[in-house]
Amino acid sequence: MRETILEARRVTKSFPIRAGLLRRAVGEVRAVDGVDLAVSAGGTVGLVGESGSGKSTLARIMIGLMAPTGGEVLAQGAPLAGLRGDARRAFHRHVAMIFQDPTNSLDPRQRVEAIVAEPLRIHRLATGRALDSRIDALLETVRLSPRFRRRRPRELSGGERQRVGIARALATDPKLLVCDEPIASLDVSVGAQILELLGQLRVHRGLALLMISHDLRAVAYLCETIAVMSRGKLVEQGPTAKLIEQPNHPYTQLLLRCASLDLSTDLSQKED
């Protein structure tokens, strides 16, 4: 049994709806509703759903950027909310993230080498020449030559920026990489390159992946397990191959048919 490195237990996130002059809470919106999701060491989980499904919110909660209103997140068995000091820092080292928009996820004023080195500096993992060679090694892993070091984000293409983001994420040798719509903003051919790179990283480094995406095909390529979310709830979860062949939940079936753009799909139940 592989060790569970990140787990969401009955995680719920509600946002109050405020109305009236005094802005009192008249109700709540449940962005995430009682979700159980676990990622094991070296495992790959794809979290899919449409907009409003709560997948991005869940991801942000699991990575500690947001606190849940109910339930808890466990990092290697320990509650994430209770982690302080060294333990908290260790969590940041072990869990890394890449974002959807490569343009916005890099500090426009920093050069590539500073961007990639930042996690190492934050955690004081390397300095001087050791830092330098680490930067070069990271760039090489994402197939960028060292001449990219002095460039700034605006001088890079979308694919190159995403690679820099991946290099930065790999800086602390994380155990889990959370990918939030990693190829949605990229050209098809470039996105395929990134997908393939992520696949290689998974294989060569035993990296666990949590991929959040609306693109079922991409998730099916990269992940061994798929979790389907709809309106805050996890409707189905299981091994990819099986989920695709024999989806249980009607929503999963719907999603699969739509993902291959089957125009005969019956969508009369869906309000729009």
């Binding site: 990575i63 500690g64 950027l65 908290r88 820092r89 969590f91 940041h92 080292r93 869990v95 890394a96 993230m97 974002f99 959807q100 928009d101 916005n104 996820s105 890099l106 500090d107 426009p108 930042e118 996690p119 934050i122 955690h123 983001g165 930065r168 800086a171 602390t172």
Partner: peptide, 17 residues
């Protein structure tokens, strides 16, 4: 709210940083 700030938080940067 920009993602590069989020990225820094995920990497463990302190608010001061």
């Amino acid at each position: 709210e920009r993602e590069f700030v989020l990225a820094a938080r995920v990497a463990g940067a302190s608010p001061w940083r």
